[in-house]
């Protein structure tokens, strides 16, 4: 049922979110700078948010606002995560003078 709401089919929103999420995954694997990896994680969170809002726009039930509240909570958790993560990164930089993740492989052993 390829009905069109407001001109754009839902499948295009799914493609856009999938592409953004995959770019985030690719960036996490591609770069070595921990800050860029962090930014790619933010990109993945945003792709998921976009998908949630798109589904709530097209398949909302009687109320239709739960997904937007969920996105609001995801934004709150992302803000808290960024604060703690950047504090950890500052600590790592203070101890090793680098944000290269290949120097941080001491946790492996």
């Amino acid at each position: 049922m390829q009905e069109i709401v407001q001109g754009v089919p839902l499948q295009h929103y799914i493609w856009l979110s999938a592409i953004l999420f995959s770019i985030g995954v690719m960036g996490v694997l591609y770069r070595r700078n921990a800050i860029i990896i962090f930014m790619c994680v933010e990109l993945m969170l945003n792709a998921v948010n976009l998908m949630l809002v798109a589904f709530s726009r097209y398949h909302s039930g009687t109320t239709g606002s739960s997904a937007q509240v969920f996105v609001f909570f995801i934004m709150a958790v992302a803000a808290a995560e960024v604060a703690v993560g950047l504090a950890i990164l500052m600590m790592v930089y203070r101890n090793t003078k680098s944000t290269d993740i290949d120097f941080l492989n001491r946790l492996k052993f």
Binding site: L10, Q11, S22, V25
Partner: peptide, 21 residues
């Protein structure tokens, strides 16, 4: 990853569209 995501959500537009009241 993109291929898996697109293929696994392929049947999402088969659901009936229910706009908010």
């Amino acid at each position: 990853m993109m291929l898996i995501l697109v293929v696994s959500t392929k049947s999402a537009d088969q659901l009936p569209i229910q706009k908010a009241l």
